[in-house]
Design a protein around this nucleic acid. Structure first.
Length: 415
RNA sequence: CGGGGAGUGGCUCAGUUUGGUUUAGAGCGCUUGGUUUGGGACCAAGAGGUCGUGGGUUCAAGUCCCACCUCCCCGACCA
């Protein structure tokens, strides 16, 4: 993509509406814009980041045998009355009545809908186990939206649901999911802790939360860096020594990345999702559910990966893998080389952005650092005279001086 | 919903305390022309504003009073 043909509105100054670091950088780098409090639009660069995160999630979900589907955002209130959660959700759930007088809501989550689907389509143990997932927009009328997309009223979530014949099956799927989550967050360049949590309104007995330390995190957790133990503070408690390894405990603000639950039969019973088992007995399917705050991950990644110049995208998340920076686009030699490299990378299927704008070098450097593309190819007059171009890794700021002819192979090694 | 802060060109802000420089300012960005091109460069000429909204006080309101709206932060709340 050529910069001159895309829409990356970067901001030089910190917008007044943003206080947290990730929110500021998302606005400045041209990833998102606010429509109203708690509701954001994603600009092309933001969408590319979102796509990259989703790609990782899909790969890891498929790798454990989960199948993607897409449920509806509009849901009948009736289903929620059956599980009793229409009351639990209260005003968080956005409700409305359509012209036919049907009572509806915009899905804040999808346990009811998926269980209803299972109820009407699964009737035998032969059809189980089943693990389904979707990546979809959720709606929650939050009391106080915060920190940009961290707590928004409209956000994107990956939610997965497992259905098994017995608890043994649930254990297996729960474990697989737990491990897949670790791989996902690791590939996203996140430092995170996993801890046992209160299942809350979701129900069921065991749940685990994945938390990413971040300055603007909403929850405080106790963490031990020695053994990776982490827990949520209980009222009045002040933990200083790790109960497992006696290491020193740190209190850290953190963002909830994901949460997994063993729901067992809470929903399958309420919605009467039965199947016929091997022994000919009618049983309720054993359920688990597994959520990741996809859009929120962007904020968490930035909170953990930035410097004074801007965002530092981890390799797999970077909205383009390479940005080519011809320092003087009026210079024919520089321009030609920039386009030659660009075409070469495109032909190799490498996602590349060429800053073809007629702007001073300083502007291009600042913008490239701000939007945080993984690799920068810098082409300037002086070094080009010696046949040299520079390759800068945004993450560690090392600059490699390379012969033109070696550049592409070097890039391929790094990505 | 309680407490605090803010709303003035696209963005960041000054001006409001103490009403009155006549047409409301600056920097950045934007447009045109030119000089530039290794870290947000420079010169010249331009475009762009219901001062959040409504009402009130006054000879006169961005500035004072009342009501409301919006945004941010803390709290309550939250899979």
């Amino acid at each position: 993509m050529l910069w001159s043909e895309t829409f990356i509105p970067t901001l030089r100054q910190v917008p007044q509406e943003a206080e947290s670091k990730s929110h500021q950088l998302m606005l400045r780098a041209g990833l998102i814009r606010m429509l109203i409090s708690g509701v954001y639009v994603y600009l092309p660069l933001g969408l590319k980041v979102l796509d990259n995160i989703e790609k990782i999630i899909r790969q890891e979900m498929e790798s454990i045998g989960a199948q993607e589907l897409l449920l509806s955002a509009i849901q009948p209130l009736e289903l929620w009355q059956k599980t009793g959660r229409d009351k639990d959700m209260g005003e968080v759930m956005i409700r409305f009545t359509d012209r036919r007088g049907r009572k509806l809501c915009l899905g804040p989550t999808h346990e009811e809908v998926i269980t209803n689907l299972i109820k009407t389509n699964i009737s035998s143990y032969r059809q189980l186990p089943l693990v389904l997932y979707q990546i979809q927009t959720k709606f929650r009328d939050e009391l106080r939206p915060r920190f940009g997309i961290v707590r928004a009223c409209e956000f994107i979530m990956k939610d997965a649901y497992s259905f098994d014949c017995d608890e043994e099956g649930l254990e297996k799927n729960y474990k697989k999911m737990y491990e897949a989550y670790q791989r996902i967050f690791k590939r996203c360049g996140l430092e995170f802790f996993c801890l046992e949590a209160d299942p809350g309104v979701m129900g069921g007995d065991v749940s685990h939360e994945f938390m990413a330390p971040a300055e603007s995190g909403e929850d405080e957790i106790f963490t031990c860096y020695k053994c990776k133990y982490a827990s949520l503070p209980k009222e009045g408690e002040n933990l200083e020594i790790c109960p497992y390894c006696k290491g020193k405990i740190k209190r850290l603000n953190s963002i909830e990345l994901g949460h997994i639950f063993k729901l067992k039969t809470k929903y399958t019973q309420a919605l009467d999702a039965k199947y016929l088992d091997k022994d000919g007995k009618v049983k309720y399917a054993i359920m688990g559910c597994y959520g990741i705050g996809v859009s929120r991950l962007i904020a968490a990644i930035i909170e953990q990966n930035y410097d004074s110049d801007g965002i530092i995208w981890p390799k797999e998340i970077s909205p383009y893998k390479v940005i080519i920076i011809p320092l003087d686009i009026q210079d024919e030699l520089i321009k030609k080389l920039a386009f030659d490299i660009y075409k070469k990378l495109v032909s190799l299927n490498i996602d590349v952005l060429l800053d073809d704008r007629d702007e001073p070098a300083g502007v291009k450097f600042k913008d490239a650092d701000l939007i945080g593309i993984y690799l920068q190819v810098i082409i300037g007059k002086e070094s080009l005279k010696k046949g040299i171009v520079e390759l800068k890794v945004r993450m560690d700021k090392t600059k490699l001086k390379l012969k033109k002819s070696n550049l592409v192979s070097h890039i391929r090694k790094l990505i």
